[in-house]
Amino acid sequence: MLTGKQKRHLRALAHHLNPIFQVGKGGVNDNLIKQVDETLELRELIKVSILNNCGEDKNEVAKAIAEGSGAEVVQIIGSTIVLYKESQEHKTIELPK
């Protein structure tokens, strides 16, 4: 579980990132979760964009992706989700205590 201070730090790092994945009318599926998990292992911090034609609620989408990939939801702002997962082999982000 991330503390408020850690989330603030991650939000600052994510500010300049562009969304890598888009969730559309297909919603969240196993393939998307697998790709998000692999990308999080390499980058640790990513953004996911939710398109207008996605029929699911953005909070449900964030929860499904986070649970499926083992990530933490850092922020949901507008139609963009920021996800963080500590990498096992490619650790680059140092979280404040």
Rank of each mutant, 00 (worst) to 15 (best):
E44F: 14
E44R: 09
K47P: 04
K47C: 06
K47H: 04
K47Y: 04
V48W: 08
V48F: 05
S49K: 13
S49M: 11
I50Q: 03
I50T: 05
L51P: 08
L51F: 14
N52R: 09
N52M: 01
N52W: 10
N53R: 00
C54M: 03
C54V: 06
C54S: 09
C54W: 11
G55L: 11
G55Y: 09
E56L: 13
D57E: 11
D57C: 08
D57V: 14
D57N: 15
K58D: 12
N59C: 05
E60R: 05
V61K: 05
A62T: 10
A62I: 04
K63W: 03
A64I: 00
A64R: 02
I65C: 04
A66D: 02
A66V: 06
A66H: 02
E67M: 08
G68I: 12
G68W: 03
S69D: 10
S69W: 06
G70E: 01
G70S: 06
G70N: 07
G70L: 07
A71P: 09
A71S: 15
E72A: 12
V73I: 15
Q75G: 00
Q75D: 11
I76A: 07
G78L: 02
G78H: 04
L83A: 10
Y84K: 06
K85P: 01
E86F: 01
E86S: 10
